[in-house]
Design a binder for these strands. Structure first.
Length: 196
DNA sequence: TCTAGGATCGGCT
DNA sequence: GCCGATCCTAGAT
């Protein structure tokens, strides 16, 4: 189980350290476990690509201004949900880490059912909207505490160790309109060779 | 009120 | 590789 302190540091550190961690989702249908293999850091009020840029404090982004270690879930393109972990050193940072891709550990049958439109096994969980489909996460999970072992969505760690050289870095995806920030190296992913 | 556009996905060429 | 789907949010009027 990742405690509160894990999230109380800069988004860049949290994004890097969430790699290889495990998302657990329990429901009546069964339990799904996924290992995170790709993340993006959104730095908060100073980051033009971040929903809280310039101190934006609207209803949608309310959870980003709340306690660290809670979820921020929003709808994109009117179709897909994206799951983030709220983080940052202090409350007014309003930063978060987007969970972009994962590999399947437990709940294969359930995930295939939830992702039944997917025709290519290799592309089962390679996007933020796909993760939310597999986990059955929607706006109802916004602001949920990911550190609470009693709740149905949380992030845990296991003994899986990743060598430093297995972490790759690149620019964030889909934020061309964010100007210079589109080039910031805030996307972290595990190289194919170490994915289980 | 109105409107433009988005941290994407899947199907088709 | 390209394009349409689909609807909510934020910012402008």
């Amino acid at each position: 189980m990742l405690g509160r302190a894990f999230y109380q540091r800069p988004a860049e550190d949290v994004a890097r350290n969430l790699l290889a961690k495990i998302i657990v989702r329990e429901s009546d249908e069964g339990t799904v476990r996924l290992r995170i293999v790709e993340t993006e850091a959104y730095l908060g009020v100073e980051d033009p690509a971040c929903h809280t840029f310039g101190g934006r404090r609207t209803e949608r982004v309310g959870s980003m201004w709340g306690e660290k270690g809670h979820a921020y879930v929003y709808l994109i393109y009117g179709l897909h949900h994206c799951l983030n972990a709220v983080c940052g050193r202090k409350a007014e940072d309003a930063a978060a880490v987007l969970l972009r891709a994962a590999v399947l550990i437990d709940g294969h049958a359930l995930v295939r059912r939830r992702r039944s439109k997917c025709r290519d096994e290799r592309r089962l969980l390679d996007g933020p909207g796909k993760l939310c489909q597999a986990l059955a996460v929607d706006r109802g999970f916004d602001s949920m505490d990911l550190c609470d072992p009693e709740l149905s969505l949380r992030i845990e760690s296991d003994q899986f160790e990743i060598p430093e050289e297995a972490v790759e870095v690149g620019p964030r995806v889909g934020i061309a309109s964010a100007g210079e920030a589109a080039r910031w190296q805030l996307r972290f992913f595990l190289s194919e060779s170490v994915r289980l």
